[in-house]
Nucleic acid binder design. Structure first.
Length: 937
RNA sequence: GCGGGCGUGAUGGAAUGGUAGACAUACCGGACUUAAAAUCCGGAGGCGUAAGCCGUGCGGGUUCGAGUCCCGCCGCCCGUACCA
């Protein structure tokens, strides 16, 4: 072969992938005696096409897998499909294809694309969660959990679309309306199957401390999500009994110390007392009805303006029956947390303060900063920091913890209706995991509802409960529920006619144990205990940070449940976790930011820029005049002015055109914000909008996460087939730290491609020089080689792929200088090049194989051992220290490695570059061995 | 709203509290070429003739020394329980 040919990546890569497959080198044997290493990337949803996020994720995982393989581990690196979920049903509705057909076709297409990346995956373990074999085992796990008491029935609030007669996901509710029907969404109570994750709240919290190879941010997010808080359940007696007979309100509070600052009690709209009042109070009933049209997500509820309605009820203050507090129903109180009721202390809680200001309720500060006196007042901001209690009778002068304790103790010892008025309670924000979904494309919940026997588990010999195939999606609602025969079965217990549960499981259930199933994908039981315990926990799990809470917490719970059900004791599934950043790309759009593909734009010529600038000068001028208009929402990039609404702004427009004596705009009155590129970017930087028939500008709207809707996706398939996988892989690893968002740029990608070619050329040139004896010993290159190997292995082990890439660039630079240097012996070149090929093999596996063959080596580099580092070459005998005067670098000094401190001090004080900054002896002289010298003048 | 993260040259970024800007991209100059691409060599944070001064989103603080630690802001991004 000639190594001076250009490297033909697509052809060469296909050749090596075929060779690997032929030799089946990525199949993992559970009985291989070498130490095990389990690398897993979060498995993909089979949307039909891979996206750049997948390319990044799987490249990182593959580097780790191939590196560990080279380091002598028995590596498990499997792949499968998170294949249930709503998109398949949406596709079924839109294209009239069955979800299964659509999903499996997508899997085939995506598998081919993934294969073209050259990943070292054991495809023999592949499965999809929609495979009957997989969900059969999942149903068995569900029933095992049911038997262990880990499954409950609870009532939950869901988004209900009254037109489509269906439950909506939060993302399907847009501004309070159903995405498809446009109908106003209502909250509705729905009985649900739940997993008892709260049983493990404390354990899940405590064990976070053991996850030392997880990112701190994820651990913190999980801690906050579990939300342990110590507080007090306290009961407030109603001053007048409510007609329904309810006589008290129980609240949970973490701030009992602020009880003397209480100015109201508020109930969640779903609170039993609120519902009772609504029976006879139309105002309260109307308010509750209105809050139910709000959507169920925490974001919507808490962002909404804080509003409430007075119930006409009052409660007595627990420490002074003469003080009574009004009872409100308020939209910001969550029924799911605590008791669904609070006492409001406006001075020390921002939400309570906002509420109190709105309804003119008193604001009594009862905690003051340590350095403030008793005149301390609260203005627009609640005081939530540490301080001293005041205005609180017997608590005055106490610290917050002491006051909390005092209140708790007193109320524990106060009887109200024969029970203590207060009880200390540890509360968790974490709720049980509702797994019921009223959808078709999910794992059926294997339970039968019998009028006589209640909820009856499907016996094991009647599993799996398969999804019926003859379903339609042309009418709203759950196809399982309206299927003519599927749900009608005989009760396994009494034999009477009964009905199947028609809910299916949340897809998070599917992804909560797939990593365990991969260890023994064909096992007769859901999990092969011994094999699973051998492989788990996953040594390195890699995926998006968007899974930091739910998926990862559910999986941690699930494995605890698995252990309780006797399927194997590995409560923590993921030992090492890494969350990679997203892939972003520039976006382009029209004047009013209708997204455009890059092909729908082109740069403007100088003449066009001038024309466009002239055409839009009027808009820019009017926009500037409107910047101060209070009617305009300044958070938007542009506002289309409606003559019917934006009268003053429109008048300003018309006035300008009258003044300028040019043709006025009637349509097209738009305010452009100062941040809009029409105003922020020079006309020469604008683009032509090729979709428009007339001379119309388009703009670069900045870098955003790749998404279809923003028309800024780059299709991996075309990149892979044109330039090859190694270029794409190298690009994904270069420059940007893996945990951060990476911006896809053509320039960066081209540079990666040039580097692939450069390596190929360099290896060829080195091979041509490998026979030479060399006039020197090549010590510098040997040192660079061994130092590079060490630096790269450290970088990969720390998942600093961008740092590993930088070290490889340095290494190729060193080689490039060494090749024409005839002093360097060929044997040293060979050592360096062979080591380098093994070291970049995990990143560019195809190129590495081709180089390996060119070097005359036998076998696959994919099976080659990682180069051994000669430690003796890494030891430096002299060392150069920077010398600072008053913290500024002024000189440097080179000394023998073991030079004693006092000798360094003496030498430094003799240096001209030091002396000229000194007037007499230094105040202080700091020598940090091996690091730095600092002279303090 | 709440929780979390990020912010360093034109750009991506590097830097156990110890020489800020490694490495790369874009750019500029040179070599090769009829020419271009590719390739190779060299340059470069800003200001200044220079000594030097200034520089890690903004404002404070701790330290002999702060991109790094602490406090307060600003901006962008992610999650928020039925998207996966």
């Amino acid at each position: 072969m000639s190594t001076h040919e250009r490297y033909n990546a697509p052809a060469t890569e296909a050749k090596w992938r075929a060779a690997w497959e032929q030799a089946d080198i990525y199949r993992t044997d559970n009985d291989d005696p070498r130490p095990k290493y389990y690398v897993l990337e979060m498995f993909p949803y089979p949307s039909g096409r891979i996206h750049m996020g997948h390319v990044r994720n799987y490249t990182m995982g593959d580097v780790v897998a191939r590196y560990r393989r080279a380091k002598g581990f028995n590596v498990l690196h499997p792949m499968g499909w998170d294949a249930f979920g709503m998109p398949a049903e949406n596709a079924a509705m839109q294209n009239n294809t069955h979800p299964a057909k659509w999903t499996y076709a997508n899997i085939d297409a995506m598998k081919a694309q993934l294969k073209s990346m050259g990943l070292s995956l054991d495809w023999s373990r592949e499965f999809a969660t929609c495979d009957v074999a997989y969900y059969h085992q999942q149903q068995r796990l569900f029933l095992a959990f049911l038997k262990e008491g880990l499954v409950k029935r609870q009532t939950r609030k869901v988004n209900w679309d009254p037109v489509d007669q269906t439950v909506l996901a939060n993302e399907q509710v847009i501004d309070g309306k159903g995405w498809r029907s446009g109908a106003t969404v209502e909250q509705r109570d729905m009985p649900e199957w739940c997993f008892a994750i709260t049983d493990y709240a404390q354990d899940l919290l405590d064990a976070i401390d053991t996850l030392d190879r997880w990112p701190d941010k994820v651990r913190l997010m999980q801690r906050n999500w579990i939300g342990r808080s110590e507080g007090l359940m306290m009961r407030f007696p109603l001053t007048v009994h409510e007609p329904s007979g309810l006589s008290e309100i129980e609240v949970f509070t973490t701030r009992p110390d602020t009880i003397f600052g209480a100015s109201f009690v508020a109930l969640a709209p779903g609170h039993p007392l609120a519902k009772a009042v609504a029976e006879h109070n139309p105002d309260v009933a109307a308010f509750i009805a209105e809050t139910q049209k709000m959507g169920t997500s925490a974001e919507v509820i808490e962002k909404a303006e804080k509003r409430g309605v007075f119930t006409n009820l009052r409660v007595a203050h627990p420490f002074d029956p003469d003080i009574t507090l009004p009872v409100y129903v308020a939209n910001f109180i969550l029924m799911d947390y605590g008791t669904g009721a609070i006492f409001g202390c406006p001075a020390h809680d921002q939400r309570d303060l906002d509420f109190a200001r709105k309804y003119s309720l008193p604001v009594h500060p009862v905690v003051r900063p340590k350095d403030a006196d008793d005149t301390f007042h609260v203005g627009a901001d609640a005081f939530t920091d540490d301080g001293v209690i005041f205005n609180s009778r017997f608590l005055d002068g106490m610290s917050i913890p002491d006051a909390k304790n005092e209140i708790a103790t007193r109320l524990e010892n106060t009887e109200l209706d024969g029970r203590p008025q207060g009880t200390r309670k540890v509360n968790f924000r974490l709720r049980d995991w509702g797994i019921s979904r009223q959808r078709y494309w999910g794992c059926p919940i294997p339970v039968i509802k019998c009028d006589a026997c209640g909820l009856v588990p499907v016996p094991d010999d009647q599993l799996p409960v398969k999804l019926p195939e003859d379903v339609t999606f042309d009418v709203p609602g759950n196809p399982l529920d309206r299927h003519p025969t599927w749900k009608h079965v005989d009760c396994p217990s009494c034999g009477a006619p009964a009905q199947r549960e028609t809910d299916t499981m949340d897809t998070f259930v599917d992804s909560s144990w797939y990593f365990a199933r991969f260890t023994a994908p064909d096992a007769a039981a859901p999990i092969d205990k011994a094999v699973m315990e051998d492989w788990l926990p996953v040594d390195q799990y890699i995926g998006g940070v968007e899974h930091a809470i739910l998926h990862l917490l559910y999986s941690r719970f699930f494995m605890r449940a698995v252990a309780k059900a006797g399927y194997g004791d590995r409560p923590e599934p993921f030992k090492g976790l890494f969350t990679q950043g997203m892939v972003t790309h520039e976006t382009y759009g029209s004047l009013t930011r209708e997204w455009l593909t890059p092909e729908e734009t082109r740069p403007v010529t100088a003449a066009e820029a001038a024309d466009l600038a002239a055409k839009y000068a009027r808009h820019i001028e009017v926009s500037k005049r409107l910047d101060a208009d209070p009617r305009i929402d300044k958070t938007l990039l542009h506002v289309v002015l409606d003559p019917a609404v934006e009268t003053s702004a429109c008048e300003a427009y018309d006035a300008y055109f009258a003044e300028a004596k040019c043709e006025p705009l009637t349509a097209g009155r738009i305010w452009f914000s100062p941040a809009h590129p029409l105003r922020a970017a020079a006309p020469e930087a604008w683009l032509m909008n090729l979709k428009a028939a007339t001379l119309t500008p388009a703009f670069n709207y900045g870098v955003e996460k790749m998404s279809k809707s923003k028309k800024n996706v780059v299709d991996p398939d075309s990149v892979l087939s044109t330039y090859g996988a190694d270029t794409a892989r190298w690009f994904m690893l270069s420059d940007t730290p893996p945990e951060r968002d990476i911006e896809w740029t053509d320039a960066g990608f081209d540079a990666s491609h040039r580097f692939v070619q450069r390596i190929w050329r360099l290896v060829g040139e080195a091979i041509a020089a490998m026979d030479r004896p060399g006039s020197g010993d090549g010590a510098a290159l040997r040192k660079a080689t061994h130092a590079s190997v060490r630096a790269i292995e450290e970088a990969i082990e720390g998942l600093g792929f961008n740092r590993a890439v930088a070290r490889l660039y340095e290494w190729t630079n060193a080689l490039q200088k060494a090749i024409p240097d005839t002093a360097v012996p060929g044997s040293v070149l060979r050592e360096s090049v062979e080591a380098m090929v093994v070291c970049f093999g995990p990143m560019m596996p195809h190129l590495a194989e081709e180089c390996w063959t060119a070097l005359g080596k036998d076998g696959f580099v994919a099976n080659a051992a990682w180069p051994a580092v000669d430690e003796s070459l890494l030891v430096e005998d002299t060392i150069t220290l920077p010398v600072q005067v008053n913290g500024k670098r002024r000189a440097e000094i080179t000394v023998a490695k073991d030079t004693p401190k006092d000798q360094i001090e003496a030498a430094v004080l003799e240096m001209e570059d030091v002396k000229r900054f000194l007037n007499g002896p230094p105040k202080k002289l700091i020598v940090v061995p091996g690091r730095i010298v600092n002279v303090v003048a």
